[in-house]
């Protein structure tokens, strides 16, 4: 992985770097200042080493597949479709909870910067309650307090476990989005408000046409970060009985009745989440640096 050099601040450049004897030991530069990715220079022998290790692991696990049992590798391949279907439940829950949480969170966040003190205090309290209680506890709360079915105009509506869990997860998301909105709006310098007033914008116009468009850019990275956290929180559904990736893993282990599968299978689930969440968090850091306001 290499990193593109950022703009040269001096503007003046000599051909090539000149050897300079520094009076002090310069700090190591291990991370690209732009993307935060560490400098890693891959050579061909790295790839050879990696492939050799992988091949060794696969053959070693395949060779244990005698006496009628599948090797670890084959077992993982066999269960992959089921695990992926479980993982898609996680993704579905994360997207739905994010959508619900964002809609209500934005409303709550705007209430937090309302000009009316009662609304401000009330929404602040609501935000703090859901922000400072554990996700698992709010999830339990919703799972046990909301009935599994109810009558609406004579038709019986049954609520599935996953939809209830999604609602339970959207509450802390709502509170966090509310804080992001409040923080984003308050991070816009006060001179913007004053300038808008000077140009005869009223309060609402200033907020919607001047402040929020600027704040949106600052709110996006923490919002994406929140999504990554939410995606990782969806496995909590396992504790309250939603059939998602981790639940299926436990069922697979129970079905196979083999202890040597425990480590690979849980590692496999970890890998799935990592492959999904890692790019999101890299992108978040990238956007954060790109849109950072120079102090």
């Amino acid at each position: 992985m290499t990193c593109k050099a950022t703009k040269n601040s001096q503007g003046l450049q000599f051909g090539g770097t000149m050897p300079v004897l520094h009076p002090v030991r310069l700090p190591h530069k291990h991370f690209c200042p732009y993307s935060g990715v560490p400098y890693v220079n891959f050579h061909i022998w790295h790839g050879v080493l990696l492939i050799a290790t992988l091949a060794l692991v696969v053959t070693a696990s395949a060779s244990t597949g005698d006496q009628g049992r599948l090797g670890i590798w084959d077992t993982l391949v066999k269960w992959t479709p089921l695990l992926l279907s479980g993982f898609s439940v996680n993704l579905l829950m994360s997207i739905a909870a994010m959508a619900i949480g964002t809609v209500f969170g934005v409303i709550l966040g705007l209430c937090q910067i309302s000009l009316m003190p009662q609304i401000r205090t009330g929404s602040w309290l609501l935000t703090q309650i859901f922000r400072n209680s554990p996700w698992l506890v709010t999830l339990f709360y919703v799972m046990y307090v909301i009935p599994f079915e109810f009558d609406l105009f004579g038709t019986r509506i049954a609520l599935s476990d996953w939809s209830k869990a999604t609602f339970g997860l959207s509450l802390p998301v709502m509170a966090n989005v509310s804080e992001i909105v409040r923080g984003g709006v308050q991070s816009i310098p006060a001179v913007q408000w004053e300038a808008a007033r000077g140009l005869a914008f009223n309060h609402r116009q200033t907020l919607w046409m001047i402040i929020l468009p600027q704040a949106a850019k600052r709110m996006l990275p923490p919002w994406m970060n929140l999504y990554a956290i939410l995606t990782m929180a969806t496995v909590l559904g396992n504790i309250v009985g939603v059939t998602e990736a981790l639940t299926l893993t436990r069922e697979i282990i129970a079905a196979e009745a083999r202890t040597d599968l425990l480590l690979p299978l849980y590692g496999y689930v970890l890998l799935m989440f990592f492959l999904y969440v890692f790019p999101i968090s890299r992108l978040t850091i990238y956007l954060e640096r790109k849109w950072a306001v120079d102090a």
């Binding site: 990554a228 995606t231 990782m232 929180a233 969806t234 496995v235 909590l236 396992n238 504790i239 981790l246 893993t249 282990i253 202890t259 425990l262 480590l263 299978l265 849980y266 590692g267 689930v269 970890l270 989440f273 990592f274 969440v277 890692f278 968090s281």
Partner: peptide, 19 residues
């Protein structure tokens, strides 16, 4: 940072704990 804490806990307790 990029994997669910609950999955990590299971990995440690059920995965590593049994071996």
């Amino acid at each position: 940072r990029n994997t669910p804490p609950l999955a990590q806990l299971y990995f440690f307790y059920f995965g590593l704990g049994t071996i």
